[in-house]
Design a protein around this nucleic acid. Structure first.
Lengths: 136, 136
DNA sequence: ATACAACTTCGAGTTTACTCTAAGTCAATA
DNA sequence: TATTGACTTAGAGTAAACTCGAAGTTGTAT
């Protein structure tokens, strides 16, 4: 009956709820999944590769809309190479900005944490003049 | 009348809508803002420092709830050093994980982009056996 | 003193991304 | 073959984080 994996198996393999997998297919984050004669999803390795890609991209915060657009372009064929390149480049640039912001915040958190580690020891939180650290 | 900045000035300085600043105060992401006699917000440099911190933390994706809890602990006083340290450490660890995920996805995006740059030149998208890159 | 813009609160509405419910279908087991 | 459990769709509901609308007040410019 099944050649590939059931939705539950894919769900467990990737830690994505079955409901979310159905939702992804419904809105087009992944292409239509292979079905059995009875109409039940039977994920092929291609289907699974799409799920894997979607999981990775979503984990990094790419919006659903960008993934849907990518899938749409993919199935429009070879005339959309440039559009797909543009889409991917744009998302990459957004991720690079996010990474920069994340590193900035991490540095700040680490600084605060260091102060609180001292505070827990001494019972006193030191005030200093590092930018943006006057009070909080 | 005003000793500090109006909500509009703060909004413009940080690129945060006035509505969002009011919302942040309402739910406790920032402490109650100083007011004029008439009840209009007059942001002191302390108020502004809290806004700046909130902006930085939110930009990195810390949840509203964590910021609210931090402000709450802050105003509970010196017995909450450990709790604040725990909160900050937890959020730092989450950011580190996100950063790792982001770097993974960036590497993958860069790989795809490189392939599409070739595809745009040659009119052909090359298939290879890099993990997870079979189709999409 | 009188407009008029900018401020106020309160509550409702929006967006994104799921997540759940209901009603029904498929498939493996007793 | 009957039952049990996993699957199906369609559509409604939820959570997080804003964002907007309405009705009323404050402050400034004439």
């Amino acid at each position: 009956m099944f050649v590939g994996l059931t939705i539950k198996e894919v769900s467990e393999q990737f830690g994505i709820p079955s409901d979310t997998l159905r939702y992804y297919e419904r809105v087009g984050v992944i292409p239509p999944v292979t079905r059995t004669a009875g109409g039940i999803r039977d994920f092929s390795s291609e289907d699974i590769a799409w799920v894997e890609t979607a999981k990775c991209m979503r984990a990094a915060g790419l919006p659903i809309e960008a993934l849907i657009e990518y899938v749409r372009l993919f199935f429009e064929g070879d005339e959309t190479f440039q559009a797909r390149l543009d889409l991917l480049s744009e998302q990459r640039d957004l991720l690079l900005e996010r990474k920069k912001q994340l590193e900035e915040t991490l540095a700040r958190l680490n600084y605060k944490i260091a102060r609180y580690e001292v505070a827990v020891e001494t019972g006193n939180l030191s005030w200093d003049d590092a930018p943006g650290e006057q009070e909080a």
